[in-house]
């Protein structure tokens, strides 16, 4: 099967869904690029080149370069979704989301509920997240816990190219607002990705490693590190199950509880800040639902509760590493 990058996988999902359904439109800053200026058309395809090639195929009617006003075009995308289109809006960096919280939290997330189930809001908001890019504190946050906190939103965090394509197709076909998180350090990761369209259901975890000793839950880029740690530990005779929930809302709590029931030990790896983050959320879930299965206290591997540093040396020290996951696993095994 063909190997494709995370970037190609998302591009392919968008292309196939736009071919299948004329209601799917793209909007965002430079999703094509070059609008209204002399020079190259389709110059950018978004800041990371994910949407390149879509404007030439589908035209500017369906691939809309917007002004630099997140509050404006996110609101427009939500309104368009409420009135019949299926927009995919590119919010570039999740760090910029703050200016459109009302549109997302109070409008998109609430329409279905406030209108008695009679309204749907099939909008997808794509956004980049995560550190390691030397992009400093205002372009490196995770912030998915904020969106997971809001009922009415679906939150998707793919960790591989295969998942990225299938989850994006599901996001576009879903009738609820979906915040689609793309880790900026994963765009060049390669994986076997079928040419045909496919949808991965939300709320179904992926088990990337299987073992009886320790359950490791990780999201996004942390899944790669958890796999690395699990492989290193296996050589020393410690077998980990690595669970990638893939979506934090809805979340596949069954898979986590079932695995902890077998292993009795849990390490949660989260690139988000430790307070009110997904690591704390998963730890609380297990403490409440599977306390008697636990053979050791739950360990969280997260960055410290500080902004992402700009200094490369500090940024590297800030992020969780495979070595820190190994250490935590050894801690719960001790």
């Amino acid at each position: 099967m063909a190997k494709k990058s995370f970037r190609q996988a998302i591009n392919e999902a968008l292309t196939q869904e736009m071919r299948r359904d004329p209601r799917v439109v793209l909007m965002g800053e430079d999703v094509a690029g070059g609008l209204g200026s002399p020079g190259e058309d389709d110059a950018w395809g978004g800041p990371m080149g994910v949407t390149k090639g879509l404007m030439p195929e589908f035209g500017r009617e369906r691939v809309l370069d917007t002004p630099i006003t997140e509050s404006g075009f996110i609101g427009a995308a939500i309104g368009a979704a409420a009135t019949g289109l299926r927009p995919v809006a590119d919010l570039m960096f999740v760090d910029f989301m703050g200016v459109c919280f009302d549109q997302i939290f109070n409008q998109a997330a609430k329409f279905r509920y406030m209108f008695g189930g009679k309204a749907v809001t099939p909008v997808v908001i794509r956004t980049m997240f995560g550190a390691g890019f030397r992009a400093a504190s205002q372009h490196s946050q995770c912030l998915y816990p904020l969106f997971t906190h809001i009922p009415g939103l679906k939150v998707v965090i793919p960790s591989s190219a295969y998942d990225a394509k299938g989850l994006m197709i599901q996001a576009i076909r879903d009738d609820d607002p979906v915040i689609f998180f793309e880790h900026k350090m994963l765009y060049d990761d390669m994986d076997e990705v079928p040419d045909e369209p496919y949808a991965i259901p939300f709320g179904e975890a992926n088990l990337t490693r299987e073992g009886d000793d320790v359950t490791v839950v990780a999201l996004g880029r942390m899944v790669k590190l958890a796999n690395e740690a699990a492989d290193a530990l296996r050589r020393d005779g410690v077998a980990c199950t690595v669970i990638d929930p893939r979506t934090t809302s809805p979340m596949d709590t069954d898979s986590i509880l079932e695995s902890v029931g077998e292993t009795g030990r849990l390490v949660v790896v989260d690139e988000a800040h430790p307070r009110c983050g997904m690591a704390a959320d998963v730890a609380a879930l297990v403490a409440q639902e599977a306390f008697r299965a636990l053979k050791a206290p739950v360990r969280m591997v997260t960055p410290p509760h500080v902004p992402v540093p700009f200094s490369p040396a500090l940024e590297d020290a800030y992020l969780p590493t495979a070595a820190r996951i190994v250490e935590a696993v050894r801690g719960v095994m001790a």
Binding site: Y162, G166, P194, E196, P197, Y198, A199, I200
Partner: peptide
Amino acid sequence: LKYKRLDG
């Protein structure tokens, strides 16, 4: 599961 998710 990967097979069954394919459209069609």
